[in-house]
Design a protein around this nucleic acid. Structure first.
Length: 157
DNA sequence: CGAGTTTGACCGGCGC
DNA sequence: GCGCCGGTCAAACTCG
């Protein structure tokens, strides 16, 4: 739930119009793997793509191995806490982008969900967060610490 | 002292 | 076969 709040905040504060869409997306992401890119794209209107671009054999259309969900958020900070625990395992510069991309992995045991955060060069205010895989556990974070989150956000701004 | 970050090295795929 | 490129590992380091 924390994520929803933060996402909403970021979207609202930075004039994004997809606040509700993002919320719906997040809920779907936490649901079992029963949806594919098409449905997600329609719901939230964000880009989805195969993570097996090169490593795997992405020839098929029916086979969904590793869903990859990309979020594009209007925010000055890339610290978009979604309630899960992430451990950074890498950072590389991307071509066509002067900003580096950060690679995170969920620290929960047995949960190998990955996430990468990128930011656009021409629009520094846009942050693209890409989730790969799905969490098999509950969000482990303090419940509705609204005020705490708010204070954090105020620091950023 | 433990959990998380940093940062260069390493690795496998792909193009030449 | 070689070198580039994107992604990951891991040892050292930092912070609470």
């Amino acid at each position: 739930m924390s994520l929803n709040m933060i996402t909403s905040y970021a979207s609202t504060d930075f004039e994004s119009t997809k606040g509700s869409g993002l919320l719906g997306l997040m809920q779907e992401m936490q649901a079992p793997a029963s949806l594919d890119f098409d449905s997600i794209s329609q719901n939230g209107g964000f880009a989805g793509s195969e993570s097996e671009g090169k490593l795997g054999k992405r020839k098929g259309e029916k086979k969904i191995r590793k869903p990859k969900y990309a979020f594009q958020t209007r925010s000055r900070v890339d610290i978009l806490d979604d309630g899960y625990r992430w451990r950074k395992y890498g950072q590389k510069a991307v071509k066509n982008n002067k900003f580096p991309r950060s690679y995170y992995r969920c620290t929960h045991q047995g949960c190998s969900v990955k996430k990468q955060v990128q930011r656009l060069t021409n629009d520094e205010g846009v942050v693209v967060t890409t989730y790969e895989g799905m969490h098999s556990h509950q969000i482990e974070k303090s419940p509705d610490n609204f005020e705490h989150i708010l204070s954090q956000m105020q620091i950023f701004s």
